[in-house]
Write a protein that binds this DNA or RNA. Sequence first.
RNA 1: GCGCCUGUAGCUCAAUCGGAUAGAGCAACAGCCUUCUAAGCUGUAGGUCACUGGUUCGAUUCCAGUCAGGCGCACCA
Length: 598
Amino acid sequence: MLDSWLEQKISDSVNDLLKEKGSAQSSRELLPKGVRIEFPKKNGFGDLASPVAMHLAGPLKMAPRTIAVELEKRLSLLKEISRVEVAGPGYLNITFSLDFLHECLNNLLDTARSPVSPVSSPKKILIEYVSANPTGPLHVGHGRGAAYGNSIARILKTLGHEVTSEYYINNAGNQMDLLARSTYLAWRGLQENLSEEERLKILPDGSSYQGSYVTDIAKEILENPSLLSDEERRLALAGMEHSSRFLGRFSEIAEDRIMQGIRRDLIRFGIEFDRYFSEKNLHAPDPADGKSLIDKCLGEISEFSRSSKTAGEEGIPDLFEEEGALWLRTSLLGDDKDRVLRKGDGNLTYYAADIAYHREKIAQGHDLYIDVWGADHHGYILRMQAAMKTLNALKGTRAELKVALIQLVNLLRDGKPVGMSKRSGDFVTLSDVLDEVGVDATRFLYLTRSHESSLDFDLDLAKSKSMDNPVYYVQYAHARVANLLKQAEIRGIKVPEKWTPAHLSPLVGDDEKALILLLDRFDLVVSECGSMMEVHPLTDYLTELAGQFHRYYFHNRILSPESGGEPLILARLALSSAVGRIIRFGLSLLGVSAPESM
RNA sequence: GCGCCUGUAGCUCAAUCGGAUAGAGCAACAGCCUUCUAAGCUGUAGGUCACUGGUUCGAUUCCAGUCAGGCGCACCA
């Protein structure tokens, strides 16, 4: 809040200066990116600093230091600022008055106000994440996408956006067929010794899903007679000749059980979706006209391609038929080649379904669509962006699509990578990791790095309850604050219902000032997370805040100061509880608990 | 071959969409518990920001090229 306040004041001063110079221009015109405010890393450069005089030097044709001195004259008149210094090539180093800092801290203590200010123009956002195929339990890679997507959603919501979250269930296509066959194979295997020949009939290319969950589902089907009809069971036992009559049932049951497991893992991980969207719904024919949503979508694009003058040019891909297939001209947007929607054999591609899915998204009228994908899908981004252009053009919408790619997770134990092969079934599931290290550490550690960097997830570190482990470091700071307030109560210290700046006036130490400045920055950190679509600035910030508080706590006897009496005790308690509040709030955005004691 | 991500201290990573002397945490070394939680704190040491050019008042940041690692390049999903 201090930064936006200062930005405004400097902007005013610049306008004032321009007016005096007889210029018709405004600060906004000369500084399209706004007045830059920096947080000096080192002491001695003021509380906040701005290089704005350097930025203005070019357009105004004046020396940066001359501009800085002019701005200094105006800024130093403000009672909120105790000192302005022109330094280096033309920096403005600003030091705030203590009264003003106390006022800011008082705002942070006011539980009626959110410590995060809302964005000026809230958007309607749909975020799709996880969307793991229902062919097996969530693994550690999915977990990272889940933690990221969920925290971004929480952050955007806190910033005042209207956020809906969605999970796309890829339950149509070959991999579901393979799952059904794998389950069927396991089910047969439980009842008889299958010949190699029979196995090959069930799984012609030999590969299958082999995790223990497949056997579990097969066992359940075997032990619960009501899952299959007598007819289905009879045909299934007879072999693959009538597979079309029973494989669908195996597929349904397997998908249902796996999705149940996925939902259970997600809830345990602190994640609930507003909606699950099933790919099957896109393929199902509408009883009214016999057409599926995909048919309708392709029909619309096809009609648009014929009738619209812009289709096929100006970066708006159109639809065309060639070599017996149906294509979208994605090469218009720099794709290596055009992409197939309906194959020569008449079957639809995954891409076609995904376009229809995004058409359904657009129909809901959001401003921004966020898709969170694994990094291995990056080749798909251009294609999807191309389809969005076409959809926007034909729908007359301006929906924006942002894709966040989540890089790989390397799971380490004893410093060595843990193998994760889905085929052999020995991969580590999210659930295993949660059993071993818990939800809090898992979520926090997933979010300590930019999603664009691959992440080493050290199981031993995650488990360790020591200072190496940032999540304990941060949570411990919160527990310390809670304990201080409890101790104060035990000692009969009465904490006021509502704090006022007068309560805070004893806070004059350098470390106290620094803590207030750091607390004040929280607002900006969260808003940056939102605009950059990154979560790790928040985990970094919380670690820094916790560290600064631990140091403060160590060096200052909060409940029994050397001197200063009750007013100082109260003031320090106020500062501590502000720290507690911000840590609690920040952890909640990460989906991590803030314990009262540890 | 083409595309995307990454290259910063011994290790894992930051660096506020071009700014001041590039910062943390581990690990190493030297210290601090009669106290509101030592799950903590203090100090020392550690760097050719992969390399080479370019853009400008200024580059770890932007551009081009080179090298290295990861991932992806289907009428699969």
